[in-house]
Amino acid sequence: MSARRLLPHPLLTPILAAVWLLLNNSLAPGHVVLGLLLGWLIPLFTLRFWPETVRIRKPRVLIRFLAVFILDVFLANLVVARRILGSPDRLRPAFIEVPLELESDLAISFLANTICLTPGTVSARLSPDRRTLLVHALDAPDPDAVRADIKARYEAPLKEVFES
């Protein structure tokens, strides 16, 4: 058998092994071996549930994106906390349609999850043709600015990581 058949998802194996070690909260050699074994067998047995192989084109961009993301989660929470504590009358909620340039499922779900966790926005619906994402913003006096922000800050790096 070729290496590709034996190890269909090279990224999944170390992730599953790490999850196993975290679950057992130990680094004992036995658990390392068992974790690697599970990480190898589970992708083999669940092969048909994983139609697309994940390929990260630019790991460095991904790391920078994650750093921006973690910082934004904290900032977003401070902003949302202030909006909640302020008067509800002054909120300007809006639905915003964001046209998508991403095409792969994984990149779109990454973007939707990122939007949900960052500045006052929740992704609400992906249109059936997967070209626009409907986003609800908690407080958007200027919907165009929110749209431009999402596209530049999150969509562009994701496109580079997964689709370039």
Binding site: A81, I84, P93
Partner: peptide, 24 residues
């Protein structure tokens, strides 16, 4: 604060924001 947003805000779509971000 997340639960306060859930209890306090006006409509469902704004209420959604508190629990998803602050509580997490």
């Amino acid at each position: 604060i997340g639960s306060l947003g859930l209890a306090r805000l006006r409509d469902f779509y704004t209420r959604l924001h508190g629990p998803t971000k602050a509580t997490t």
